[in-house]
């Protein structure tokens, strides 16, 4: 990762509240191109809310977010051409096979002939280790396979920025580690920028170049940096407790 690269994402004093309830405020960070950036924090701290802001599903009540150089509020259509998103549940379409799920963005946004679409979709599924499962329905595969298939669908149009929501949540350690390896592998092969929302410590240490930590009590970010550095040198009790798996 080069520090000289233009930032892929800029979050500038972002805040979100629902009615009078503040979820977080004054969250600021940048994600460099080609970086694996992790958003972490305990349950209810606003990780998924921040993700929804970054992918244009939620308008920040304060601040500004740019993704791929575009403002997520004003240029959301352009932002969505720059990103791929894997939702926590996978969100695969149950009535389509894995191949059809991955082909869907290609059908919608390209004029490729059917054979070419199938060829590309098959390769994307092969990249995530699902070459043998192309004709299966989402109901016929495991949770780990569904997450891999969702990553393949997010990769369908080769977006430069990928957002992954809790990729290893609910998976066994081996499958979770496999997904971590897949993320690093894809980053090395495709030069993508990854924003990963997770609270899995092993995953964070395995994949993150940098991370931002949100906190429910603080209603905002309490740490930003390299996970190992934060573990060793942070003086914030919640940060130390999180990285050392300890009660604050």
């Amino acid at each position: 990762m080069s520090a000289a690269c233009a930032p892929a994402i800029v979050v500038d004093h972002a805040g979100q509240s629902f009615g009078g309830r503040v979820i977080f405020e004054d969250v600021s960070f940048t994600v460099a191109t080609g970086e694996v950036f992790v958003v972490l924090g305990g349950s209810g701290c606003g990780k998924s809310t921040l993700l929804k802001q970054m992918i244009g599903l939620l308008t920040p009540t304060k601040g500004r977010i740019t993704v791929g150089g575009y403002d997520v509020v004003e240029r959301v259509a352009l932002v969505r051409r720059e990103i791929g998103v894997m939702f926590q549940s996978g969100a695969l379409f149950g009535s389509m096979t894995l191949l059809e799920n991955v082909m869907l963005p290609l059908v919608m946004f390209t004029d490729l002939p059917a054979r070419a679409r199938a060829e590309i979709a098959r390769i994307k599924l092969a990249m995530v280790g699902l070459a043998e499962a192309v004709n299966l329905l989402p109901s016929e595969i495991s949770g780990g396979m569904a997450k891999r298939a969702a990553i393949a669908r997010a990769l369908a149009l080769d977006p430069p920025i990928l957002f992954l929501d809790e990729p290893s949540a609910g998976l066994d350690p081996i499958t979770g580690a496999g997904l971590d390896r897949l993320i690093l592998d894809l980053r090395a092969t495709l030069d993508c920028t990854f924003v990963v929302v997770t609270h899995e410590l092993q995953s964070i240490f395995a994949i993150a170049d940098r991370c931002v930590m949100l906190d429910r009590e603080a209603r905002g970010m309490i740490a930003l940096g390299v996970p190992r550095d934060l573990q060793q040198s942070s003086t914030h009790p919640t940060v130390r407790a999180f990285f050392n798996r300890d009660a604050p």
Binding site: R122, I123, A126, M127, G129, A131, E132, V134, N135, T189, L190, D191
Partner: peptide, 22 residues
């Protein structure tokens, strides 16, 4: 070099003859 590496990786990942359906 990068595209060559990508192609090498894809050659390994994509098995032959997986398109058959029941």
């Amino acid at each position: 070099e990068k595209p060559a590496q990508l192609m090498a990786r894809l050659r390994l990942a994509v098995p032959e003859g997986v398109t058959a359906k029941v």
